[in-house]
Amino acid sequence: MTPRPQSPPAGRELDHPALDEIRLEGVLHALSDPVRLRIVRSLAAAGEDLACSGFDLPVSKSTTTHHFRVLRESGVIRQCYRGTAKMSTLRHDDLERLFPGLLDSVLTAAARQAARLGD
């Protein structure tokens, strides 16, 4: 008898906005915070899912959770549980479809600013 795939436990599914629910002002708000922009830059550089616990951020765990929630609820990232780890990935293709060039422009500008300021 083949084991059936297990559904995630109740409460382990995270809400994400559908593509048609993502709003420009929500994305811009999410990207306007330096900590959230740092998360987005890390995800873009990695090009793969990263565990939330793997980010070295200069804020408390509860504040980190808040920043990830803002990014997820605005449609900038997608999160899922893999075991006990909450994995995050950038919704680059979705954002590119809705707002062509926006994310790449923000990432380029953020990289230039980091270089200029020595971050």
Rank of each mutant, 00 (worst) to 15 (best):
M1S: 12
T2L: 15
R4V: 13
R4G: 11
R4I: 09
P5A: 15
P5S: 14
P5V: 01
Q6P: 07
Q6H: 07
S7Y: 07
P8K: 11
P8T: 02
A10E: 13
R12W: 07
E13Y: 13
D15S: 15
H16A: 13
A18M: 07
E21V: 07
I22S: 03
L24Q: 09
E25R: 10
G26I: 02
V27K: 06
V27E: 14
V27A: 06
V27H: 04
L28A: 11
H29Q: 07
H29M: 05
L31C: 15
L31S: 12
D33C: 00
V35R: 07
V35A: 12
R36S: 15
L37R: 09
V40Q: 06
V40S: 10
V40N: 03
R41F: 12
A46F: 12
A46P: 14
E48D: 13
D49G: 14
L50N: 03
A51D: 05
C52W: 02
S53R: 04
D56H: 06
L57N: 06
P58A: 02
P58Q: 09
V59Q: 02
K61R: 12
S62M: 10
T64Q: 14
T65G: 02
H66E: 03
H67M: 10
F68W: 04
R69K: 02
V70L: 07
V70M: 11
R72T: 02
E73A: 03
G75R: 00
I77Y: 01
I77G: 03
I77V: 10
R78L: 00
Y81P: 04
R82M: 00
R82S: 12
T84R: 14
T84L: 08
A85T: 14
K86P: 01
K86Y: 00
K86W: 01
S88L: 01
S88D: 07
L90H: 07
R91I: 00
R91T: 00
L98I: 02
L98Q: 10
L98N: 11
F99G: 11
F99C: 08
G101L: 04
S105G: 15
V106R: 01
V106G: 08
Q113C: 10
A115G: 12
L117D: 05
G118F: 05
G118E: 00
